[in-house]
Amino acid sequence: MEIPYTSSARADTGLYNAKLGVWLFLASEVMLFGALFSSYVLLRVGAASWPHGYDLLNIPLATVNTVVLITSSVTMVMSWASLMMKNFSRFRMYMGATILLAFVFLVIKYIEYTGKFSHDIFPSTNTFYAIYFTITGLHGLHVIGGIIVNAYFWSRGSRMWKTDPQRFTNRIEIAGLYWHFVDLVWIFLFPVLYLL
């Protein structure tokens, strides 16, 4: 049986089905991260004292990571735009750059984490580090998830470009929606955890 509305839009929603599906998934993601942000506020206002993130965390590394993730968002949207312009080799280049930048983000995060661990700082050290490791850890898992999906579309999954280019372009668009969401979460995490 063929899955309906993978390429063309449904008349009633005006959307292809997967796009609505990904937006509903992102709505649930907003609630997931929202619950953790809410916990952060609750912990912070309930604490007798709360450290400044900039005294405990590595601002230069986190700033570089912000630049890396924003750049990866641009390369992601450019990979979709390349497909819209029927340029498959450029798509591969931009998608490859997106995956590479995601790895750079993880390597920097690894350096940050191991820097803390080597100083005997763990999630159990105090409430600040507990929420820091929880939220950034969950965000890191999202980055890994994005790498897996994007790597599939960069490699084996890209065969669809030959058989059903419109559907493949749609897939890249919604993979992009997820990836931009991961960037968007970091845009809030960076100032909230590191700079305040």
């Binding site: 959307l15 992601m76 969401f181 960037d183």
Partner: peptide, 30 residues
């Protein structure tokens, strides 16, 4: 990011409705 990269400036009504509902629940959480 949402407006340009996620194309929210030119999206369908159903997605706006979904996001408004999400926004309300998010505000409750906050």
């Amino acid at each position: 990011v949402a407006g340009y990269f996620m194309h929210l400036l030119s999206e369908r009504k159903l997605i706006y409705s979904t996001l408004i509902l999400t926004g309300i629940f998010f505000l409750v959480l906050m």
